[in-house]
Amino acid sequence: MTTQKRREWGIEKLCFRVQRYDPDRDRAPYLEKFIIPFHHGMTVLDGLLYIKENIDSTLTFRASCRMSICGSCGMLINGLPRLACHTPIEELRKETLEIRSLPNFPVIKDLVADLVPLFEKHSSIKPYIMRPDNEEVETPTAEFLQSPKELEDYLQFAYCTKCGICMAACPTVATDRLFLGPEPLAQAYRYCADNRDANTGERIKEVDSPHGVWLCHLAGACSQACPKGVDPALAVQLLKRTVVSRSLGLSRERKPAPLAPPPAEIKPKLPVPEFTAKQSKT
């Protein structure tokens, strides 16, 4: 945004209404108001860091990379779950921001949500390559063959940073604590679609359960909220298709990607003179 446009917005100060909750002192979370200066290019995380450094050092929140790659700073910002580092305040165009911890996760303190439920559900879908020759996965001797097309079948879903924002947006997670949720289901599909994996059947047993994939009703909020373009809604529907086709016998467990064969021939290096410091002086 140019200097002229910033002047047009005419904002000098912002009001941050931030959720506070100290489990040793408070019965319930409340909102505390902070007035902070605004500068062009400021993100919500910049505002929180300013508060922590200059106004109230007890304000507690998670943040790490500040470039939307780690997924730590997920929060409810003006009613939508977002990454604080990835939310420029000028985009919101509001002088007052309301910041709460991610919904559908328990609150530990202030803006810090307890993501253990997410990680437990994520672990339950076996988020790792499983194949008959598991020792090759543990101690690899060569690469597995995977074409660019086969990579594209799951790559989008591999960009997930486990930030939990999709879980905060999902209406089913809002009421059902046992529902796996968009992130674990999307990751289950990521591994089912990966041609290096050969254990779709075991994951299907986990997701085809009373609190599994069939409680997704395609509200689409997860894909809208996802800050990395992972599109978990697409992954979940493709997972449903996989479960149905497997159950009806329309598809079978595929053979996993084979190991790349050793190179047929090794061309010798070109005879280039060896340059050393000692030789270059002569």
Binding site: D208, S209, P210, G212, W214, V243, V244, S247, L248
Partner: peptide, 8 residues
């Protein structure tokens, strides 16, 4: 009965 058959 498995959930998938109920859903189908």
């Amino acid at each position: 009965m498995r959930e998938v058959y109920l859903k189908l």
